[in-house]
Design a protein around this nucleic acid. Structure first.
Length: 620
DNA sequence: GCAAGGTC
């Protein structure tokens, strides 16, 4: 029997081949430059295997040519006209490779990622293969990690393709196209016609992900703008053990924190002054841990990368993609923050011992520094957390910095939590409670044998856990504070959104996926809805007048679930789950969603003057 | 000239 195996991407086809063939296989080129076809015998099934791949989706949806021209029709009709489902122009070579291979095989085994998109890509692969060989038997391999045992088990225990999951993706694709096209055309044409400043603005797109993304930026901007500082008061108390040394001050924090009522603060302060001699009520000493980081997901890479490496999320993902293609990093698009229990950490750590910067640390992990990585809560059942797959010694610039971050993060995951020693001193002065906290990695010799360790912090300089010395205090000890003042301060205004903040918000609200979040941010910048403003080391996102105008305009119309809020997208997500469960059909999902958006569209068009007003308010 | 999803 001849079996045709098709993976979602070339790298997976290669890994599967290496595992199933035991290293004995032949390679040939396909019509597509990225795709190779591998062949070998698989005696366990008494079969000859051909393994190849696609490069993501094969098909795309679009309107027919008669609707291409924006003036050809009222945008509203795009809610209902038929959509074409065709192999995308740039995927013709991918499809022709499958179609050519199908006739010489009796069985097709689909090895796409085990998620909704993977199921959908699998159904596309099946369609193309069937067009080359109508009688080909179609099966699906289920695997959640590229680990030999799992891959063999998947090959020998194939299942059915899940057509419900595939259908849920089709429904979402069609809805996104219809909604995106109608609102984009209406909005762009309307604003160009009615707002003089915008007549040359090329494209003012609407998308179910880009608008909620813009909404987050505008909403933070409004918070910053409407912020009114408040004054608060607190009692500041400190002790100088050596009154001649101004540096040697132990500052105590008032247990009440901040008070926003001056009268009350004054009364309490006067109580304290009447009896200011302080008494130490308690000295607490305890061992404390700072947890090592979780295994790295794409979203985390982008958040911490943009914060620590000061690169745009999109840039980080591009660099990581290149490192993956060069064989230095594992697949960079993953939601998983749990390593498979069978994952071979020893082999990966061994590859890093040669590094001049962290090789010594890796050697330490090989001796007794190793501890199994923490287990997060997310598993996409398709890819492991991001980790280095080979040592890279010759990188430069951004590639070097991203590789270093991923590698240090990985080694930190395989290390131990940092251990410190914390002392808290509680005092009472004039009936009010104060405290001071100090922390050490190594306790001064008093107790002698407690050895505390920085552990993962030695390889992960991105986390800070500073030493803060505290002089010795004893319970019952009394002292006269060197300073005791009623001080005031003001609440500070919130910061504008950073790219890292925005990635986090989108992830939390289900806007976009690990692979697309950075693109959506880039889109709202490209559309000039938002400007990325660099202030020192941090990049803040500031909405433009156009961006603010659009969001304000739509919310003025008073949509129950505004177009720039995440609820509508969440509803789409919920319906996809229902289609996957079988509690809703694809057609029902499309109908319901389109009805809802038709309503929104009509309301928006009838009240378009409000959007125009908001967009006109200031020059762009 | 429209979307978002995959991958390169």
């Amino acid at each position: 029997m001849r079996v045709l195996c098709v993976a979602e991407k070339p790298s997976i086809a290669k890994s599967i081949t290496q595992i199933l063939s035991g290293g004995q296989y032949t390679t040939s080129n396909s019509a597509n430059r990225y795709i190779k076809n591998y062949e070998f015998d698989y005696p366990q099934l008494n079969a000859h295997f051909t393994v190849t791949s696609v490069v993501g989706h094969l098909f795309g949806y679009d309107f027919g040519p008669q609707y291409k021209n924006w003036s050809s029709c009222d945008p509203f009709v795009l809610f209902d006209v038929p959509v074409e489902h065709k192999v995308a122009e740039d995927k013709q070579t991918v499809a022709s490779n499958l179609k050519r291979l199908a006739p010489s095989h009796q069985e097709l085994v689909i090895w796409t990622d085990c998620d909704r998109e993977g199921e959908n890509i699998g159904s596309e692969v099946a369609t193309v293969c069937r067009s080359g060989n109508p009688r080909i038997r179609i099966r699906r391999a289920r695997f959640s990690a590229i680990i030999a045992g799992q891959i063999h088990r998947a090959a020998q225990n194939t299942v059915e393709l899940d057509m419900r999951q595939a259908a849920s993706v089709e429904a979402r694709s069609i809805i996104d196209l219809r909604v995106g096209a109608t609102i984009t055309r209406m909005q762009t044409l309307g604003l160009q016609r009615l707002v003089p400043q915008l007549k040359d603005q090329k494209l003012m797109s609407y998308g179910p992900c880009q608008f909620p993304t813009l909404g987050f930026v505008v909403s933070r901007y409004e918070q910053v703008k409407s912020f009114v500082p408040e004054t608060f008061w607190f009692i500041y108390l400190s002790l100088a053990r050596d009154p001649r040394n101004e540096e040697d001050q132990t500052e105590f924090t008032w247990r009440r924190g901040r008070l926003f009522d001056l009268d009350i603060a004054l009364v309490l302060y006067e109580f304290v002054l009447e009896n200011v001699m302080a008494t130490v009520t308690k000295v607490t000493k305890k061992n404390v841990k700072k947890w090592k980081p979780l295994p790295l997901t794409t979203v985390e890479l982008q958040k911490s990368g943009s914060r620590l490496l000061r690169m745009a999320p999109k840039k980080i993902l591009d660099v990581a993609e290149k490192l993956y293609q060069d064989g230095f990093l594992s697949y960079p698009r993953t939601e998983t923050d749990i390593f498979d229990p069978q994952f071979d950490h020893a082999a990966l750590i061994a590859k890093q011992v040669v590094d001049p910067a962290w090789g010594g640390f890796a050697t330490g992990l090989q001796q007794d520094g190793y501890a199994p990585p923490r287990r997060g809560k997310k598993d996409d059942h398709a890819h492991p957390p991001i980790h280095p797959t080979a040592h890279a010694g010759n990188l430069n610039g951004d590639a070097k910095r991203v590789y270093e971050f991923v590698t240090r993060r990985y080694l930190a995951c395989c290390s131990k939590d940092a251990e410190g020693f914390e002392t808290t001193v509680d005092i009472v002065s004039g009936g009010e409670d104060f405290y001071a906290t100090g922390r050490f990695f190594s306790e001064p010799d008093l107790v002698g044998l407690v050895v505390l360790a920085r552990n993962y912090l030695d390889v992960y300089p991105y986390d800070k856990w500073g030493d803060k010395a505290l002089p010795d205090f004893e319970e019952g000890q009394q002292f006269m504070p060197s300073v005791c003042e009623l001080r005031d301060g003001q609440t500070s205004q919130p910061n504008l959104l950073t790219e890292a903040d925005l990635v986090g918000l989108m992830d939390k609200n289900g806007i976009g996926t690990d692979a697309t979040i950075a693109q959506h941010i880039q889109t709202i910048i490209d559309r000039e809805y938002v400007v990325a403003r660099k202030e020192g080391a941090v990049t803040y996102l500031v909405p433009s007048n156009l961006g603010i105008g659009l969001v304000e305009g739509y919310s003025r119309i008073g949509f129950e679930r505004s177009l720039s809020k995440p609820q509508l997208r969440r509803e789409t997500e919920r319906m996809m789950v229902q289609v996957c469960n079988g509690t809703k059909t694809k057609a029902e999902m499309i109908d319901e969603s389109v009805e809802q958006y038709k309503h929104v569209f009509v309301l928006a068009r009838n009240n378009f003057n409000r959007i125009v007003e908001e967009s006109r308010r200031s020059p762009h």
